[in-house]
Each structure stands twice: as C-alpha cells, then as structure tokens.
Simulated scan of single mutants.
Amino acid sequence: MSTNLISLYIVAAMVGIMVFFTIAVAPTVFKVLPAEWSSKYVRSFFPKYYAFLCFTCIAASLLASDALISTLTFLCAILFAIAQFILTPAINKASDNKDKKHFGLLHGLSVVINVLQLGIFIYILWPSAS
C-alpha cells in the first residue's frame, strides 16, 4: 500500500469524524444536556478535536506523495491549530463575558473554517472516488 493511499485514508477518516461530530454529537449534546453541562462538554471536547485533527492532517501531509494533497492537508493542520489556540480561547472569553455579538462572529468564523476544511478534504478525495 502506497503512502499516498494511506494519506487519502487518513483524509477520509477526518471527513467521517467531522461529519459525525456535526450531525450526531453537537446537536445531541445541546438537546440532551443542560446548558451548563453542554458548555463544559464542548470546552473539554474542542481542544482534543482540534489537536487530533491537526496531528492527523500533519500525518496525511507527510505521507502524501502528491504535492497538492500535502500542501492542502498541511494548510488544514494550520487552520486546526489556529482554531485551537486562537479562536477557541477567544470564543470562550466572549462567552464568559456574555458578549453575544463577539461570540457569534468568532463562532461563525470557526464554523466557516471547519466547512472550508471539510470542503478541502472532499476536494482531495473526489478524484480518488472515480
């Protein structure tokens, strides 16, 4: 099995993780848990989510023999790091300060980045599907 194929499997796994979280985990947490608990859960979950996906992006980047795949997965790793170390603390601070406008903007930016990353992963996988 080529390292490029392993890289594509990693990208496919990241798509699965991201879609599962978006469709199953996040809506369930906010529907089932009280607001205080769901907030604590999300604050605990996201650093692990971003770190895991960042490191798996780096692995996919290093294993890819295709320069475009390597570059795109490394770019996604950088975006996960930005989300973890810059956006998440700012989102938490806005939430703590009950600054709904700032929270909404930052959260919206994190969603846009996540959708962009998912789009990049699907773009990477698309030619492999045929």
Rank of each mutant, 00 (worst) to 15 (best):
W126Y: 11
L105K: 15
F52M: 15
L109S: 11
F52E: 03
L8Q: 09
F20E: 00
F103D: 03
I23D: 00
A59Q: 10
K100E: 11
W37M: 14
S7E: 04
L8G: 00
A129Q: 03
P127S: 13
I17C: 09
Q84H: 10
I78L: 12
F21A: 11
F55V: 04
S70P: 07
M14L: 13
I82R: 12
F52V: 13
E36N: 04
A12K: 05
G119T: 00
V115H: 02
L105T: 09
D96F: 06
L116W: 10
S130G: 13
I17D: 06
F121N: 06
L62F: 10
V29G: 01
T22C: 01
S38M: 03
L106T: 06
S110N: 03
T28I: 00
L75S: 15
W37Q: 13
A26Q: 01
I91V: 13
V11P: 03
I17P: 03
I86W: 10
M1K: 13
H102P: 00
F55K: 12
T71Y: 09
N114L: 11
A83F: 05
A81N: 05
K100V: 07
F55E: 11
L125W: 03
N92D: 15
L106I: 06
S38F: 08
C57N: 14
L105E: 04
F20D: 01
F21T: 08
A59Y: 02
F30V: 05
V111A: 14
F74W: 06
I17M: 11
L87G: 04
L109Q: 06
C54L: 15
P34I: 04
F55L: 15
L109R: 07
N114M: 09
I78D: 02
C76S: 12
L118F: 07
I86F: 11
E36F: 08
A51Q: 06
I91E: 03
L75F: 13
S61Q: 08
T73Y: 07
